[in-house]
Design a protein around this nucleic acid. Sequence first.
RNA 1: GCCCGGGUGGUGGAAUGGCAGACACAAGGGACUUAAAAUCCCUCGGGGGCAACUCCGUGCCGGUUCGAGUCCGGCCCCGGGCACCA
Length: 824
Amino acid sequence: MDERYNPRIIEEKWQKVWAENNFHKTEIDRTKPEYYVLEMFPYPSGNLHMGHVRNYSIGDVIARFHKMRGYSVLHPMGWDAFGMPAENAAIKHGIHPAEWTWKNIANMRDQQNRMGLSYDWEREVATCHPEYYRWTQWLFLLFYERGLAYKKKAAVNWCPDCATVLANEQVIEGKCWRCDSVVIKQDLEQWFFKITAYADRLLADLKELKGWPERVKIMQENWIGRSEGTEFSFTVKETGDQIPVYTTRIDTVFGVSYVVLAPEHPLVEKLTQGTAYEEPARAFVQKMQSLNELSRTSTETEKEGLPIGVRAVNPFNGEEIPILIANYVLMDYGTGAVMGVPAHDQRDFEFAAKYKLPVKPVVQPADADNSSVLTAAYEDKGKLVASGEFTGMDNEAAKAAMTKWLEAKGRGKLRVNYRLRDWLVSRQRYWGVPIPIIYCAHCGVVPVPAEQLPVLLPEKVSFAPGAKSPLATVDEFVNVTCPVCGAAARRETDTMDTFICSSWYYYRYTSPRSTTAPFEAQEADHWLPVDQYIGGIEHAILHLLYSRFFTKILKDAGLTKVNEPFRNLLTQGMVIKDGAKMSKSKGNVVSPEEIIAKYGADTARLFILFAAPPERDLEWSDQGVEGAYRFFNRLWRLVHYYAPHLNGSGKPVGDKLNKTDKELRRIHHTTVRKVTDDISGRFNFNTAISSIMELVNAIYGYKEKAATPNIPVVRAAIRDIVLLLAPFAPHITEELWAAAGGQGSVHRQLWPVADEAALKAEEVEIVVQINGKVRDKIVVPAGLGAPQMEEQVHQLDRIKELTEGKQIVKVITVPDKLVNIVVK
RNA sequence: GCCCGGGUGGUGGAAUGGCAGACACAAGGGACUUAAAAUCCCUCGGGGGCAACUCCGUGCCGGUUCGAGUCCGGCCCCGGGCACCA
């Protein structure tokens, strides 16, 4: 063993050994329990950043730990390789997206290997590979067959910068999730996935996800946004048209003083046609449509409306009320029309105040006083007033009674509504999966037959973005013969949202080279669900919701038995420097390359796991890295010092141990237990590492104290340190394992188990309190009974002194911990 | 506005209701060295005291308890998510 720790040499050496032996190949041993650990696969931007380093370090510890614990572990890696940066690079630098992407993949894979990560590269997948996207297309067709992929013309979110449409989930505060541009609405014919058909199951099955952070489940719950209410119709007096409305407050229906339609509501044009309201209404609608999503839906925006000259009849009391159009009613939620109840809905209240519409209170609070004028809507519980036959009822009871009344008359019904919208999956971009659909003048929409998949991306394309997909400019791609009738037809030229690619990759890993199916059911059902999934909180809704949706469809189609794809989810915090997220614009980026070059991968990994628990944000500290490096040097020197005595299997730890030996042995086994608990239970790698440091410190202390060291005791402690550290620092521990006389690779050893007998201390220090304040300490034999403890405590001079002349009210004893004397 | 997290030394962070501050970083002092680096040892929440010791201290106010960073109620601040969702 070298005298000095040289990470550069040993890391290169072991990485070579592992690569040459295909060391991280997935072990197929069905006698062992299986464990699937997965880190969210990256977009191949070209370089790893510290967030990746954190993500992969966490995953690698979990993977290696489970291998040492006797599991057969699946730990794969791949590439979410379609997406716009590749196209932007093409536009900017004239390099083909494919070339750019594959080069980046090669570079990042190399960086991952230099981190010493235990991936089974035989299972690598890249979503831009034709053998992968072939199956993405196959799944699209499966969705299509099952009626879950459909086309519709709709006002869609358009990002002018990306020149493409976005799903609702990808619009954050009215802005594009990728580039932050303000999103506008456009009417386009687009492909959608019917995720709303699964809203109820996506919501209900959140309960199954015991291993998910509460807040992620809450975010999904809010996103799905289930509400229970009543749907019923108003009749337009002049034309007899029905206006269905949805309300969660049917109990306030006697307080309705107007009906509002969304500007885009289909009835608007019909009702105003040929009237004096036609022009103003059209102008109003146009004005609303020109506004972007952000200003249109903000609560800050002032409510604006316009009467359209017709009246609606309230089915409950026959009252005639005005119909208006207004900006605060949205076409794509509920029915696109609402009943206006200013007395009991704050939005309606504000609107009514502005347009001088009547306010009719129909729900009265228990402590009602009729004298005061309402200054805000009353939205709480109460008793119904002025509500015909329902007057006097409790408002909650009235909801049920009124809905029943409607049902009996066939004029309305109970309805569950969701905030969730269908997933818009078309993208007008080149670097994505072509949608495998053909349009034929005779046969209509024709899916590409499965045996003709993949529909390959043409290589020679002009990438300039526009309202149409770049694929539309490639004649050889567009022009095709109809698979049904053989007539000339044209291909769909949009590509798929890349979130489709990443919604099923964890299935592909289980049989990555299958040429007969997206994945083999037997393999998938063996490995899935993923036992531990690790990634950033930013995917709490998008990726995780889509993946859950995919899994449910795959289950319904009989392709898998799995109901939920990710059993346990760990959401890691961000890596921060100088109080802000690392970013180029802030100039606070620390590159993993540099750190690894300077200190080695083991140090980078140890620091990032030591500096904070994984769920919290982590403040980067150059001195902290230095500290991790110092620890390895300190450990190296310790092993080097004892190395001449550590060879061979050695004599077992005998029974002739002195006090110092026993104390070291106790710390040693306490550490084994603590590290095991910290890794397996709560992923507190920081405290696991700190207890290993304490053990190292304890051996240094032992080295000073013990005149003649008990070599078997030291050897056992050092070997276990190396084993406990192996998942964190895979390179140095290989080296130290050999130096400590270990046979074979440290990563093929079994995880150590704490010896219960060694854990027990013979003596313990207990705290003596008076009225809860520590007044003395005393060393007693471990396990001493309460009466004996008390007796010893009362003999202490200091306690005698302090309790003198006082009345002892009671004494609390906690074995091996404390005695508390309560005095008056 | 609503819904989640989180507030502990100079810093990152530890603490099944039982000694607050483990471990580490920074800082200060010392040893070794011609010197420096590296390494090793000591100090390190605040106040008072020569000292033994003592008082205060986990965002704020109150409560439960022999005992509260931890449990309960109310509030303040910070971070995140959602937001005309009828």
